[in-house]
Amino acid sequence: RKKFKGFKYYDKRFLNKSFDPGNKYSIPYFWGTLGIVYNDKFVKRSEVESWDQLWSSKFRDKILLVDSARDDFAFSLISMGKSVNDKRPADVQAAKAKLDALMPNVKAILDDEIVMYMVQEEAPIGITWSGEASEMIAENKHLHYVIPKEGSNIWFDNLAIPETAKHFKAIYKFLNFMSEPKNAAQNAEYVEYSTPNKGAIKILPKSVTGDQQFYPSNKTLKNLHVYSDLGQKWTQIYNDLFLEFKMTSR
């Protein structure tokens, strides 16, 4: 850790998370959220500011979901006022039942092709990650991203040193280089993901860092939750229930 000089550049709001207390093993590279993308030609922002609004009958056959058990269960659980890391059988079953009730509004459940579908206006609403949302928005000016008011997940792409690593001099040189604000800023502009590097944020244009779709307020950040490792048993339960949901007849 003494060989890594870059911690001073990182925003403390993105350090010391539950998956790595004290950042003993990792440093944040990029971060983002789970939220709602909508097309302003068909949907008003006021219609998608809450997860619960997704269940409206006016959205029948109009929503694309990302193919992710954890994320789709997350917004269902949050809409019920529950934790994204819930392990109570009754809560998880209730979240599954609520997802089942959403199925009439679901047009498709997709992987990365959700970006293309939203850009081409195959659907007016998509549930996805902010990183993919930024790609969509860059290709279609009518698309916008919302983090619902009840809260959501905050995710991190991290840099870590593998246990089998050998070339530590080069590794630390790389990590220190990537943490330099000017390099982190250039990287963030290229990748178009949110940077946790506070030095880079000072360099990036206000048009980027002032965009609350991808750099939300402190109030919103406090309402975002990191996923915990559910363990093998509960991961399997979530996955099995999600498979049942995907097989639900419409």
Rank of each mutant, 00 (worst) to 15 (best):
K82Q: 09
T220E: 02
V84H: 03
P124K: 09
E113F: 04
V226H: 01
A165Y: 07
A74G: 10
P89D: 13
L34G: 03
H167C: 06
D111A: 14
P181F: 10
K82A: 08
N23M: 08
S179V: 04
E49T: 15
F19T: 11
G231H: 07
F214V: 15
V146D: 05
Q53W: 10
W234A: 00
K24I: 08
D67L: 06
N105K: 08
I237A: 03
I161K: 06
S56R: 09
V106D: 00
I237T: 13
I161R: 05
F73V: 06
G231Y: 04
D40E: 14
S194R: 15
M80H: 11
E163T: 15
R70S: 09
F245S: 05
E139R: 13
N197P: 00
N153K: 12
S57E: 14
K44H: 10
R88L: 13
A108N: 14
I63L: 03
I27G: 03
P196N: 07
G81M: 13
D91C: 12
P205D: 03
N223Y: 05
L15S: 01
R70N: 08
R1Q: 10
K222V: 05
N197Q: 08
K149R: 14
N187R: 14
D40A: 03
K202L: 11
S134F: 04
K87N: 02
F42W: 09
E189A: 10
K58F: 01
I154F: 02
A69V: 05
A108T: 12
E132P: 05
Y9S: 04
N85G: 08
L54T: 10
I171E: 01
Y238S: 01
Y172F: 15
A165P: 09
K3P: 03
Y38Q: 05
L241V: 06
F174W: 10
P162F: 06
S56T: 12
